[in-house]
Design a protein around this nucleic acid. Structure first.
Length: 862
DNA sequence: GCAAGGTC
């Protein structure tokens, strides 16, 4: 029997589609990556009985990057990134092992049906899947078609079955337009980012951002925030005047009237209007009106609207809201949370989800009433053809969700109920008055039926007293007419919700990426989130945007994205050649880049005003090995040491504290060592600022500290302080922290494993001897006489932390020690892996190898 | 260490 492989964009869709097509008769199992599932069933395909295998990817299989050597920032001129630097497709998420998984499942299949989302990205993923799977599938007979594309616009039985009945072909042009987009974004983004970052970080010490990034989405996003800031800054308040009149309605009730001219900006004219009205005793009723009006129920909920409300009403940032929604989705409480659609599909079951809410303590009454009296037809929204709107999938309580997730769930549920409730109906009455020559109006709203505002009380029309009944020709006595002096007020900073709206309007980002862009500009310290989730640009953010405006405003304008997208659409429609569009657009941006580099002084002038030069920042900390003068420690991100005499900068590990390390020096370059520490409970190790930036040995990488240094004799090196293979990670070595006493620690030089040991020992040294059982270095420990935990009156003991019975008691990690490879799988498993003190350069004899290797081996096999 | 786009 032949096999048909079918691939969807995400696991949830594979399941829904398989369920529909197999009518529930499928057998499912997890794939080798533990994330994707395979659903199998038998059916007919092209007139024959076949085995169907429905599975999925997880978004893109591949991602675009430069070849490795072009990712070295100090070796590559960013200008090369526009054309010379070659790119390659890499596996997008190596942990998912997607390529292997698809090949295992695709091997031996005869046909493939692509069920990826029906947008350009989905079309592109089709070809990623084909590139991966076609080589392992069975060879087709000549002329036989084996590749099919299913096109669907919703996940409903009819749509999916129709798609299956009318299979087409994947659209290569659409996929190419995405390839072009990826390459443009990569080349342009990286070139500008690397240039700016290196330029400004090489000059200023207090930018407080480890990256000065540029991107076609993030930069316009920042631009919106700075634009508002500029409006606030340049705002000049203006004085205006309002004529306010009160009339007496009843004995003890007066009505406040709105002036039909609203306001005037000239004091003398305002005074004139006051003079013309203040002597009038009566206000004449000129007209009355009563109109029934409706406040519309909301459209069905899509992602962007959910994020807006989460930010503005729940105080939840977009990134956080999205994470919360994803959790609610994977736990089955809500439907798929990434959708642009605000229209329920025609046969969407609205009553099912509603029934599930019928006993909910918060809204049972409303729901029951809708169920018995009938739901309202939802408004016609926008159908983007992706996923149905966001709806609750089952009832939940605050206790089971936790307060954060609950608030989002509650909103989604109330919104859903509101979409099938009735509009809020109210009566708008108004009375037009004349006082002297001037006209005034008074309006009032009274609710006729609350409709959906019952379930969304924050939307309800505020209660107010109804207007007095009267008719044309009636007169009311004037209580007071006065002139109010007011001032126009500046706008406030942009709220996150407003920013989301602007981004959506200008096509900056997608429902899934909008939260990421906002998060980026926050994390990189271009804006801060103020109260009310308003985004206030920092000095850095302001200077960047003003700099772009000065040099090339297109770099920050929101039109840059849509202009490029217009070009890309030509590729998608087959109207333009992919290579030509790509080459042309890259050429334009390459010119922009060179102009930007040539004009960078213009942005630098703005930087100078807000930031201090490297040489003027930081505190003297450790001495330079070249000039022996003090270097300054710059704490602001990215933390580093700067030698103003040599004009050199040495990057330090981030996210920790840096201290001078006993004025000890590196034997290789004479730089004074510093001590990096992640806090009192965490780990610490010495490092040489020079070696960390210029690795001295071939097996060392940038950023490594002395605990990873393979110097054979330096007292701080891995060779001298390393003990044995890490108990948790693959390549790490446990290294004694010589500064940790009297609460001694042994920490892995790769992962976060820290073992506390030998409390109160006054000296711990790594002995040249190694353990005869596991080859780990022995530790030589001296205890105080009074506090020695050793048996008898002993104060000194030498042994292996993993194997010595006395030491095992004194090492906090003893549970972990039992996981040590030596205790875990028996001797057979040790072969072929680094052990003992871990890796040394091949060919170099280990300084710590046991003297008698045979005896060590013999001990093993006992 | 960079972009933006999928999704987990």
């Amino acid at each position: 029997m032949k096999t048909v492989l079918m691939v969807a964009e995400k696991p949830s869709l594979a399941q829904s589609i398989a369920k529909i097509l197999s009518q529930g008769n499928m057998s499912s199992h997890k794939g080798l990556n533990g994330t994707c599932s395979v659903h199998e069933y038998t059916g007919t395909f092209a007139g024959q009985t076949v085995r169907f295998k429905m599975t999925s990817v997880c978004g893109h299989v591949m991602t675009l990057d430069f070849l490795g050597k072009y990712n070295k920032w100090d070796k590559v001129d960013p200008a090369e990134l526009f054309s010379q630097a070659p790119t390659e497709k890499k596996e997008a998420n190596p942990k998912l092992n997607m390529v292997k998984f698809l090949q295992v499942e695709g091997k031996g299949c005869d046909y493939i049906v692509l069920w990826l989302d029906c947008d350009k990205e989905g079309e592109n993923i089709c070809f990623e899947v084909l590139d991966t799977v076609l080589p392992v599938m069975n060879q087709a007979r000549s002329n036989e078609k084996t590749v099919f594309r299913a096109r669907f616009s919703s996940i409903t039985d009819t749509d999916i079955c129709n798609a299956m009945a009318r299979l087409g072909e994947p659209d290569h042009n659409e996929a190419l337009s995405v390839d072009a987009r990826q390459e443009l974004d990569l080349r342009i983004g990286c070139a500008f980012t690397r240039f700016q970052t290196k330029y400004f970080q090489g000059k200023y010490g207090n930018l407080d951002s480890s990256l000065i990034s540029f991107g076609p989405c993030q930069t316009p996003t920042l631009g919106f925030c700075v634009e508002r800031h500029d409006k606030i800054q340049s705002f000049k308040p203006e004085t205006y005047w309002v004529l306010q009149a009160k009339v007496n309605a009843d004995k003890d009730r007066s009505l406040l009237l709105d002036w039909d001219r609203v306001r005037v900006f000239d004091r003398e004219i305002a005074q004139m209007f006051l003079n013309m009205t203040k002597s009038e005793k009566e206000a004449q009723v000129e007209a009355t009106s009563k109109k029934e009006k409706a406040k519309q129920r909301p459209l069905a909920l899509n992602t962007v609207e959910m994020l807006r409300v989460a930010s503005s009403s729940l105080g939840m940032g977009p990134q956080h809201a999205m994470q919360t929604a994803e959790r609610l989705y994977t736990q089955g409480y809500i439907s798929y949370p990434r959708t642009e659609t605000t229209h329920y599909p025609e046969n969407f079951d609205l009553k099912g989800p509603l029934r599930q809410q019928a006993n909910h303590p918060y809204w049972a009454d409303t729901v029951k009433q809708l169920l018995t009296e009938g739901i309202n037809r939802p408004r016609k929204g926008h159908d983007a053809g992706d996923h149905p709107p966001i709806t609750p999938m089952r009832s939940a309580t605050e206790a089971e969700l936790g307060s954060e997730a609950w608030r989002l769930y509650e909103y989604i549920t109330r919104h859903f109920i509101a979409t099938i409730s009735y509009d809020c109906k109210y009566l708008q009455s108004s009375i037009s008055f004349r006082i002297g020559p001037e006209h005034f109006t008074c309006t009032g709203k009274t609710v006729i039926s609350p409709g959906f505002t019952e379930i969304m009380p924050w939307q309800s029309i505020p209660l107010e007293e109804s207007l007095p009944t009267c008719q044309r020709g009636d007169a009311f006595s004037v209580g007071e007419v006065k002139l109010l002096e007011k001032q126009t007020t500046p706008p406030d900073y942009l709220t996150e919700a407003e920013l989301i709206t602007l981004m959506e309007k200008h096509g900056i980002g997608t429902d899934a990426s909008i939260p990421v862009h906002i998060n980026n500009i926050c994390q990189r310290n271009y804006v801060t989130v103020e109260s009310g989730r308003r985004l206030k640009p920092t000095n850095l953010g302001i200077v960047l945007v003003h700099g772009y405006y000065k040099i090339d405003a297109e770099l920050v304008l929101p039109t840059i994205r849509s202009a490029v997208e217009k070009q890309l659409n030509l590729i998608a429609q087959g109207k333009a050649d992919y290579r030509q569009v790509l080459g042309h657009t890259l050429d334009i941006f390459k010119r922009k880049f060179h102009y930007f580099v040539d004009s960078i002084a213009g942005m630098d002038e703005l930087m100078e005003v807000s930031f201090s030069p490297l040489a003027a920042t930081g505190k003297p900390l450790s001495r330079c090995g070249k000039c022996h003068r003090f270097m300054k420690y710059i704490q602001a991100k990215p933390s580093r040491l700067h030698c103003s005499h040599c004009d050199e900068t040495y990057t330090l590990p981030q996210n920790g504290t840096i201290k001078l390390y006993k004025e000890l020096r590196c034997p290789l370059d004479d730089f004074e060592l510093v001590l990096w520490s992640s806090g009192s409970r965490g780990k610490s190790y010495p490092l040489c600022p020079y070696c960390a930036n210029h690795p001295p040995f071939r097996d060392m990488k940038k950023g490594m500290g002395c605990n990873e240094c393979t110097h054979p004799t330096c007292q701080h090196s891995l060779s001298m302080l390393g003990i044995g293979q890490c108990v948790e990670c693959e390549n790490g070595v446990l290294v004694l922290d010589p500064t940790s006493g009297p609460k001694w620690k042994v920490a892995c030089n790769k992962c976060n494993v820290v073992a506390h040991c030998f409390d109160n020992a006054h000296r711990v040294r790594v002995s040249p001897e190694t353990c005869s059982i596991c080859e780990a270095a022995l530790l030589d420990v001296d205890f105080n006489k009074a506090k020695s935990p050793l048996p008898g009156d002993e104060t000194q003991h030498t042994g292996c932390v993993f194997c010595d019975p006395i030491f095992q008691e004194l090492v906090e990690l003893k549970h972990a020690a039992s996981c040590h490879p030596m205790h875990r799988g028996g001797p057979g498993r040790r072969q072929g892996r680094g052990r003992g003190r871990g890796r040394r350069p091949p060919g170099k004899p280990s300084a710590r190898r046991p003297k008698d290797k045979m005896s060590a081996l013999a001990a093993y096999f006992v």
